[in-house]
Design a protein around this nucleic acid. Structure first.
Ligand SMILES: NC(=O)c1ccc[n+]([C@@H]2O[C@H](COP(=O)([O-])OP(=O)(O)OC[C@H]3O[C@@H](n4cnc5c(N)ncnc54)[C@H](O)[C@@H]3O)[C@@H](O)[C@H]2O)c1
Ligand SMILES: NC(=O)c1ccc[n+]([C@@H]2O[C@H](COP(=O)([O-])OP(=O)(O)OC[C@H]3O[C@@H](n4cnc5c(N)ncnc54)[C@H](O)[C@@H]3O)[C@@H](O)[C@H]2O)c1
Lengths: 210, 210
DNA sequence: ATAACTTTGTTAATTATTTCACAAAATATA
DNA sequence: TATATTTTGTGAAATAATTAACAAAGTTAT
C-alpha cells in the first residue's frame, strides 16, 4: 500500500507497471496496435483483472469492447513511472559485474542510463567502459551534486557496500540498487532495492523440495 | 500462501528465510553466538514479529528470554531451505553477465554452485571460466540428464531466452533464474524467478517522483 | 436500428499477510 | 526462593492485496 487512501495500489503494482511498459514497447516493435487485458494475461502471467486494476489506480487508458492501444499505453506508463524525463544513474564498483552492467547498456533505452561510474582501484580509474568514464570514488560527492544524480547502483564487494552507501546518502543519493549480498543501513527516506542472486537461487531450491 | 492450511507462510517468507540465513552466517563469522529477534530487526529491517512468525511456520528455534543461537539457526534454516545437500546449477549464455556470474562464484558457498555452463558461440565453447567448462548448447540435454541438474540460470540475449527456456524445460529443468528482460512462457510446474535490473530501476524512479 | 457480443473500469467479497497482544518460558536479581 | 525482566511463540485482529462480479461503453453482425 503506497498512499493512505482506502483503496490504493501496492508496491507490487509498481513492479508490474514496469513489466507492462517493457512488454508494451516490445508489442509496438512487433507491430501490435491494440491488445486486450485477456491477451496480456496470457503473455505476462498476470490475471486480466490484475492488469486492469493496476492501471485503474492511475486513470482510464483502455477502450471498452476493444482493449488498449499499445502506443498510447506506453506513453501513459512512462508518465506514471516518471520516465518521460531522462534519469541519470551512478554506478559504484566497476569490477566484473559493474563492467557487465556498463557494457550491456542499451542505448536505445533513452530514459534511464548509467552516466557516471566510480571505482577506488587505480587500475580502473580514468579508464572508459562502453564510453563511460570511470571516476575516482574520491570525487563521488562532487560529481553527483554537479550532475544532480539521485540514483546509484552499488556493485562493490560485500565489505565495502555499507561505506559506499554512507557516502551515497551523504552525497544526496535518494535511491540505491544494491547487488552486494548485505542489507544496507539507510535513513528512512532512502529507497533501496536488493538484487541477490544467491537468495533467489535458494528460494527456487526451497520450492524444488516440495 | 504456500500450503492449504488455514495459517500458512507466504512466498515472501521464503525470500526472507534466505536473507536470514545469509545474515546469520555472517553473524557467526563475526563471532556472534546469540541474537534476539529485536536485534535482528534492527539489522535486517524486518519487524521482530515478522522474523519470529516466519520461523514459527517451521518450528521453534529460539529460547525464550534469550534469543536465537546463530549456529543452530543456520543449521535449521539450511534444512528448511533444502541447503543441507549440494545443488548443482546450469548456466546458459556465457557473455558479459554470465562470465561475471561464473567469476564471482564464491567457493566457500558449498551448497549452491554453477557446475555446468553452456553457450552457442564457437568462440566460447570448450573454454574455461573460473574452472568451469563451457559446453556447446547442443549437448545441454545430455549433460543436464547426466548430472541430474534441476536448476538453470539464463543469461542469453532477449531474443534467445524463450528458445533456451523451451530446451531447458524439455531437458527436465524444474527451476529457472532468468536475467533476460522478458516474461518466459513455461508449464505450470516450472518455477521461474526474474531478475530485471531495468524494471527495478524504474520502480525506484517511480518512488523518487512522489 | 437492434441485438448479440466484447472488453473495460470499479465496487464488493475474498483471500493473504502482517501486526498486535499476551501467555509461556527462561533468565537475572534481590 | 521469590520477583522482576527478557524474549519467544502464537492465536486473534487488523491491514493489504487479489479476485470476482457486473454495469457501462464500445463494436460487430444482421
Ligand atoms: N559478479 C556477479 O555476477 C555478482 C553476482 C551477484 C552479486 N554480486 C555482488 O556484486 C558485488 C560486485 O561483484 P564483482 O564480482 O563485480 O566484484 P569485483 O571484485 O570484480 O568488483 C568490485 C569492484 O569494486 C571496486 N571497489 C571496491 N571498493 C570500492 C569502494 N570503496 N569504492 C569504489 N569502488 C570500490 C573494486 O575496485 C572492484 O573494481 C559483490 O558484492 C558481489 O557479491 C556479483
Ligand atoms: N550484462 C548485464 O549486466 C545484464 C544486466 C541485466 C540483464 N542482462 C540480460 O542478460 C542477458 C545477457 O546479457 P549479456 O550482456 O551478458 O549479453 P552477451 O551478448 O554479452 O552474452 C550473451 C551470451 O549468450 C550466448 N548465446 C546466445 N544465444 C544462445 C543460445 N541459444 N544458447 C546458448 N548461448 C547463447 C552468446 O553467445 C553470448 O555469449 C541479456 O538478456 C541481457 O538483457 C544483462
Amino acid at each position: 500500500m503506497i498512499c493512505t487512501d482506502k483503496n490504493c495500489f501496492s508496491p507490487e503494482t509498481v513492479r508490474r507497471l514496469a513489466v507492462y511498459l517493457q512488454n508494451f514497447e516490445r508489442l509496438i516493435k512487433n507491430g501490435v496496435d491494440v491488445v486486450s487485458s485477456g491477451q496480456i494475461s496470457k503473455l505476462l502471467n498476470v490475471s486480466p483483472e490484475q492488469f486492469r486494476k493496476d492501471l485503474s489506480y492511475f486513470g482510464e487508458f483502455g477502450k471498452r469492447g476493444v482493449g488498449y492501444q499499445t502506443e498510447s499505453l506506453v506513453y501513459e506508463l512512462k508518465k506514471i513511472l516518471g520516465l518521460n524525463q531522462a534519469w541519470q544513474v551512478a554506478l559504484v564498483g566497476v569490477g566484473r559485474l559493474g563492467c557487465a552492467l556498463l557494457n550491456s547498456q542499451d542505448f536505445s533505452e533513452l530514459n534511464v542510463r548509467i552516466t557516471a561510474a566510480f571505482d577506488s582501484d587505480k587500475k580502473n580509474i580514468d579508464k572508459t567502459v562502453n564510453g563511460i568514464h570511470i571516476h575516482d570514488i574520491i570525487n563521488f560527492k562532487k560529481i553527483i551534486k554537479q550532475k544532480k544524480i539521485r540514483i546509484c547502483v552499488i556493485s562493490v564487494p560485500l565489505d565495502h557496500a555499507q561505506a559506499v552507501t554512507d557516502l551515497a546518502v551523504e552525497s544526496g543519493i535518494e535511491a540505491i540498487l544494491n547487488f552486494a549480498p548485505v542489507i544496507l543501513n539507510v535513513p528512512e527516506n532512502i529507497h533501496v532495492s536488493n538484487m541477490d542472486i544467491y537468495c533467489e537461487l535458494e528460494r527456487l531450491i526451497f520450492f524444488l523440495n516440495k
